[in-house]
Design a protein around this nucleic acid. Structure first.
Lengths: 219, 219
DNA sequence: CGTGTTTTGTTGCAAATGCAACAGTATTAT
DNA sequence: ATAATACTGTTGCATTTGCAACAAAACACG
């Protein structure tokens, strides 16, 4: 089974452009830092991030704002998908890099158009896939953050990476500083703990190459 | 705009039963503790939790298992939705309470059936809604768990509840013990911090009724 | 090549947190 | 009504963690 990363996956270039006409899709460009606000009351648009990066943020009453999701290439977003039963106006999509975004009517996605495009169910399938993968990714990070200690967080994350790589050796996908952010812990405290773990022979770290030495299950 | 909590929302009883015949849907019952494992290779089923509670868990190679999602009434799940591009076999749905689950073919959801039911797009809409709400809920919890201190976690969660309720007073949706679990902190440490916050006049707590006293923005 | 910037590695110290344990209260079941 | 169970509130203590600060190393770039 193939991984769906793009909402247009398994839809040919030709079908795609046909569909875009059919959907009256429009592509827009945004510069880093700008806010996407094309939400009109009568026609709900959904956006597809073709290029760049953006955040879905909530603006709190006290002025603080928190990032609800970070959107990457291929992600879909829109009032119709996330803003429902939230105070619109408290939610925004903010570009963190220059973005290219494709908009089309949400109604087109869930309903077959008049021309009854055959690839329509593929589109729905892809949307569901993208959204469910996101849920799993979020749950994974939640699982890590709900560990109590730095050591447990590291081990939890490492075991996920190891599993993903199919062996007990793997490459860290980012710097130790970012790792600390990802685990939501203090960097120096994390380094200290990592050192201890090395000394105890739990892991082997050289550069960003990690070798986990998990104790065998006794059973 | 109405909140979608049920995949059959805005679909009449009659349409629903018609659709169920059309989909060859089948309802099954599971007792608390049992594992749902009706995933066959050729026909991908999705499940709808009509009653009860269940967890989507991953079984790690070291025997540990972690909860990826907890499923409640109205949630949808299935290999087609979450298990793709994961090692099936490492993922299970485990009932935590007695459950009533409705199964039908995933293909039916994304593709119109032969009889071209008109309420089909409503079904797709509902599915997308349920899944996107889940993503927002998960992000919300992530936002909370990425706070560094117990105090920050409490305040973050409280401000979400307050915003949700539209005022600075609200009711805790669960016990303090569960709250500690939700925030992934030690219960006694949380009680201690809560007491301090009361003493400092930051919050007012009586039973499960919380009144937040956030300092006014200066500007 | 040199220079400015980011990342890594360390440490002392104060504060926050988890753990264990216990008693009192509320809630539920029998 | 009574027993059993779950929840609340509290405390002492050891440990972990965050914070601040600094130096060395690695990297980026003109």
């Amino acid at each position: 089974m193939e991984q769906v990363t793009n909402i247009f996956q398994n839809i040919t270039e030709q079908e795609c452009s046909q569909m875009m006409r059919c959907f009256q899709a429009a592509e827009k460009r945004y510069t880093a830092g700008s806010v996407i606000s094309t939400y009109s009351r009568d026609s709900q648009k959904i956006g597809i991030l073709r290029e760049g990066e953006a955040n879905l943020v909530r603006i709190h009453s006290d002025g603080r704002q928190t990032i609800l999701e970070d959107l990457h290439q291929g992600d879909i977003f829109g009032e119709a998908l996330t803003f429902e039963n939230f105070d619109i106006g408290t939610m925004q999509v903010v570009c963190t890099k220059n973005c290219r975004i494709l908009f089309f009517d949400y109604a087109c996605l869930i309903r077959r158009c008049q021309k009854a495009c055959t690839f329509h169910s593929q589109l729905v399938h892809n949307s569901l896939q993208i959204m469910s993968r996101k849920a799993v990714q979020l749950s994974e990070r939640l699982e890590i953050l709900s560990q109590r200690s730095i050591r447990e967080k590291l081990l939890c994350y490492f075991s996920i990476l190891a599993a993903r790589n199919g062996r007990e050796t793997f490459q860290l996908p980012f710097s130790f500083s970012s790792l600390a952010d990802y685990l939501a812990v203090d960097r120096s405290a994390m380094m200290r703990e990592l050192k201890k773990m090395k000394e105890e022979g739990l892991v082997d770290v050289e550069k960003r190459r990690i070798v986990t030495v998990f104790p065998r299950q006794p059973f």
